[in-house]
Design a protein around this nucleic acid. Structure first.
Lengths: 194, 194
DNA sequence: ATTGTCCCAGACCGACCAGTCTGTTTAGTA
DNA sequence: TACTAAACAGACTGGTCGGTCTGGGACAAT
């Protein structure tokens, strides 16, 4: 039992709570119940609820970066990479992590906390991974020459937007898949060399 | 002074609060201060904080639908319409309404409230407006034939995603404009007839 | 056995917050 | 003027929540 295992246990329980009722909607006592620990225990490992969230976010960003890198690198074609990323995306679609980040950002009144949040998000390699993916595709002649940085942001925006649309609408998954497919179809049609 | 003017006065004050600190981050007392009214007055017009939010949301959705329709109908070309919509979008970008809706959705524990929220969102004509816009563009031969319903969702997702990216990152507006331009460029490149 | 430290349990506290209640003013009517 | 009901004002309440505090069990070291 390594040092951080208890910390992760608490964080995992907190994650489950956040995913179902959001950051503001879950009390520390909820995390107490979900983790099976006591309040004293939790506050021995973390100094505040916000710190739990930020710890959790960092973990999640790291993992996401890893899986993202796994999808977007290698010898496959750009189209294939994006398709496999889409599958990954559709599997994880029921976790409204983005919405929770926005929520946390909105209600954070302490400027220091906001600073930490921004630092975490900026430290994520997500954007760089997307950018490299696009640069490589351009280099290989798959994508037409374009501003890779901006295109990376566009791709991120598309996925974010899709995820949040799903979160709000919660219609049938078949319709949503159709929309996701259409999104990638339009995107690829817009960037592939003719 | 018509019947709803006071209601709207309260709602406007509440909107200002929500936009700066989110739904959960603003207390009814905040709205009291911002509106210049008393708690008794507010609760005479609204029966709960949630009701204020939903009233506000309805108002906002109606107005948004109107301006949207103004941008996306008429004799202009599809490209011109989208460009003017983009300008409108860039002006209003600092109002994180979407994020607040997600926040509200996340923390809403009462199922009845969620139902009302979904009903409001479904009653919005936004999607239909986008769909009609796309259908017309296809009919006029500007866009290639495609699933207008799905494409409408894609366009909405792009704008939503862009707005939330901006909300989180808060970098310089110039970079953001570049991204927004790139997004529309890619989209149009993906849907225009060749 | 005793001391000390790590890790936790859970009672407790002060702040805050949505909503209520009582009283008062204002506007309309007769 | 007298009456009524709408439209407030603001003190108050019950409950919740993040965080603290005290105590204690486990376990190693002396």
């Amino acid at each position: 039992m390594d040092k951080d295992s208890k910390k992760d246990l608490i964080a995992d329980a907190a994650l489950a709570c956040f995913l179902s009722t959001g950051y503001g909607g879950t009390s520390v006592d909820d995390i107490v119940k979900a983790s099976g620990m006591s309040k004293g225990g939790i506050y021995w490992h973390f100094k505040s609820k916000e710190e739990i969230f930020l710890y959790l976010l960092q973990k999640w960003l790291n993992e996401t970066d890893k899986t993202l890198q796994a999808q977007l690198t290698g010898n496959k074609t750009a189209v294939e990479k994006l398709a496999s990323l889409k599958e990954q995306f559709l599997e994880k679609i029921n976790e409204p992590v983005s919405a929770i980040i926005y929520e946390f950002h909105l209600q954070a009144k302490d400027e220091a906390v906001l600073k930490k949040l921004r630092a975490l998000l900026n430290n994520s390699k997500r954007k760089a991974i997307f950018k490299d993916y696009i640069l490589l595709a351009i280099q290989k002649g798959e994508f037409r020459p374009l501003d890779a940085e901006a295109a990376a942001d566009v791709l991120i925006s598309i996925f974010e937007g899709l995820g949040l649309q799903w979160f709000i609408q919660q219609k049938d998954k078949k319709t949503f898949k159709r929309t996701a497919n259409m999104a990638l179809d339009i995107f690829l049609n817009g960037v592939l060399t003719k």
